[in-house]
């Protein structure tokens, strides 16, 4: 049963959830899973992805849509956002005269500025998400209750989270500065936005998760809402064959041992909510997302 103080109840109060983690650990899969759970719980849910591969579309079983908002299921929508396009839109919006706007857009200064300025693209994506949450949606599309961002893997996990603050620090006036400051304030407000970190039960992802938690605390004075340890090998049965008897079992045994010791390390460094999900023998797609959402629901409904 869903208790008042379950992690799931807490997550459903948020308007923005940023899903982050190292490359290939299951961010896109779990963004889809969370989306399913929220939509099933009655929330208007928007999933946003920035990765040009449009993996969310594939996982949810809808064709790539190149930027259009696609309805996947009742209350569940997905959109691919191209940061560059948002910045270009911003230029067009601010420069009402078309000729001037196209000159700015064609200028190498604009190109290099938007490509190179640290944090600018990230801040722009968040800016767009804020507008969605405030009801600036295309005609016929409801205002989302919650947006979940599948944040692409970067060298440093905090870079998506710290981007807006970085931009706001450097650019203190003008529309970009205002936008960045607004986004940074929204991301700091833990009544409205939260972070979910995905890892696997292996050394490097766990190491990076612990480092991410640390730098979130130091640089942003924040903590994740939830850490998900994904793709774990099944727990071992009580009866264990002798080593060398069954090579298949031996591999299972040693990989699960690695999972266990990494989970233990995670447990020591992270005192907040932790959910564990199995690796399932299902190809990526709606079936995998469906099965994983049942597992995750069970994990999240036990309060902690």
């Amino acid at each position: 049963m869903q208790t008042e103080n379950s992690i799931f109840a807490r997550l459903t109060e948020l308007k923005l959830i940023v899903v982050t983690g190292k490359g290939g650990v299951g961010k896109s899969t779990l963004t889809s899973v969370l989306g399913r759970l929220f939509a099933d719980a009655g929330r208007q849910t928007f999933l946003v992805e920035v990765d040009p591969r449009e993996n969310l579309h594939q996982l949810l079983g809808v064709p790539p849509s190149g930027g259009d908002i696609v309805e996947v299921a009742p209350r569940l929508r997905v959109q691919h956002i191209e940061p560059r396009t948002i910045l270009d839109d911003l230029v067009r919006e601010k420069l009402k005269v078309d000729v001037v706007a196209s000159k700015v857009l064609a200028s190498p200064v604009h190109k290099h500025f938007t490509e190179g300025a640290p944090g600018l693209k990230e801040a722009a994506v968040f800016g767009r998400i804020l507008r969605l949450l405030r009801g600036h949606t295309p005609r016929g599309i409801p205002t989302p209750d919650v947006v979940i961002l599948d944040a692409p893997a970067t060298g440093h996990g905090v870079s998506w989270l710290a981007a807006a603050q970085l931009v706001a620090d450097v650019i203190s006036s003008g529309p970009i500065g205002h936008l960045a400051a607004e986004v940074a304030a929204f991301l700091k407000d833990n009544q409205q936005s939260g972070v979910v970190v995905i890892t696997t039960g292996e050394e490097m992802p766990v190491q990076e998760t612990l480092e991410l938690i640390h730098s979130m605390r130091i640089r942003l004075n924040q903590a994740p809402e939830l850490v998900i340890a994904n793709a774990l090998y099944p727990t071992l049965p009580p009866e264990i064959p002798a080593e060398g008897e069954d090579p298949l079992f031996d591999l299972w045994y040693s990989r699960r041992q690695i999972n266990d010791s990494e989970l233990e390390r995670l447990d020591e460094g992270w005192l907040g909510p932790l959910a564990e999900l199995p690796i399932l023998p299902i190809e990526p797609g709606p079936a995998l997302v469906g099965r994983l959402s049942r597992y995750l629901k069970r994990e999240l409904e036990t309060g902690s």
Partner: peptide
Amino acid sequence: IIGRNVESFFDRMVGLELLRD
């Protein structure tokens, strides 16, 4: 004219402080 447009645009978009830095 282009230079001026671009500059005044940057001024409006990001403010003078960043430009100074």
